[in-house]
Amino acid sequence: MTRHSLSLLLRNEPGALARIVVLFSSRGVDVESLSLGPAEPHGGHSALSRLDVVVGLQPGRTAAQLVKQLGRIVDVKSVVDRTHDEALELGA
């Protein structure tokens, strides 16, 4: 299993998170950690949410493929694979 950090911007709509989580389970993706919050931090109703998630992928499955599958979800505005950034921050 390989670990990847993904960061998503999604519309703050009912069911948006559910659709992403269902994609993980139906494509056999392991979720290690997940955090959701408003994309604009200054109170009030935020139109966008930010989802940071660390996933484990089965052998033969690529993060690029998962990013494209997440990108198909209508409520997902952007997906970035931050695995490499994190490695840099940790000085790895």
Binding site: P14, G15, R19, V22, L23, S26, R72, I73, V74, D75
Partner: peptide, 14 residues
Amino acid sequence: IRSITLPITKHSYQ
């Protein structure tokens, strides 16, 4: 039905 059909719809609304 929205949750039931999440993995088999392109998108859904309530």
